[in-house]
């Protein structure tokens, strides 16, 4: 484990930025907020946090971050999207929206797929690659309707896919950052930031 040398950024335009920064610091990672294009310099990994995907998508464009984000992805650096971050990483083949979709993972997503806030929930979740169940908090969460070839499904609630990975990108519909259960974050750091899975 060479983590101590790693720097992970948290996209900081709107949403649960503080929790992710705190979780990273708790695990001894150098964590930085990413608000401007130059903030991408020197990052080994990036977290796209939960928040409102429409607002975050808009601000990514207005802050001039889209090109750097795409280049970061292309360079094979680890990217972890939670909730709104998952939505932003998806493809939108049915063109249901004009909102930003980065297409980092070939998957179609149903926004607010579990319903409105009164249907938001928490539960213990089985997660492929992690031994114990993880504490999972779902807030007006999306789910993944379908995945393309090569995309590995990591978790599901009933028949709804809620976590997946492909090459250098990991996405979850739930919010590990709202809990003190660092298993999913550790999974991301081990597999996507420390270098074992880095693919161009």
């Amino acid at each position: 484990m060479v983590r101590i040398d790693k720097t992970v950024g948290v996209l900081d335009v709107q949403g649960a930025v503080r929790e992710h920064l705190l979780a990273l610091k708790t695990l001894g990672i150098k964590a930085v907020s990413v608000k401007r294009p130059e903030d991408f310099d020197g990052l080994d990994g990036l977290i796209i946090p939960g928040g409102e995907s429409t607002a975050i998508g808009r601000l990514i464009r207005e802050q001039g971050l889209e090109d750097r984000l795409r280049a970061f992805h292309k360079a094979g650096k680890g990217i972890f999207g939670t909730c709104a971050g998952l939505i932003l990483c998806s493809t939108d083949e049915s063109h249901k929206t004009n909102d930003l979709r980065l297409g980092f993972i070939d998957m179609e997503v149903e926004r607010n797929g579990f319903g409105r806030q009164v249907a938001s929930f928490e539960m213990p979740l089985k997660f492929e690659g992690i031994d114990q169940e993880v504490e999972a908090v779902f807030i007006r969460a999306p789910y993944i309707q379908s995945v393309g070839p090569g995309v590995k499904v990591l978790a599901a609630v009933d028949d709804k896919i809620v976590a997946a990975e492909h090459e250098n990108v990991l996405v979850t519909a739930h919010h590990p950052e709202l809990t003190e259960d660092y298993a999913v974050l550790n999974y991301f750091l081990d597999k996507f930031v420390d270098g074992s899975e880095v693919a161009a």
Partner: peptide
Amino acid sequence: MSNRKVGSDRVKRGMAEMQKGGV
């Protein structure tokens, strides 16, 4: 289905956390 918990503090406060930095 049965192990889903709705309306917990974490779920209710978490919703507001997601609004941070927003209008």
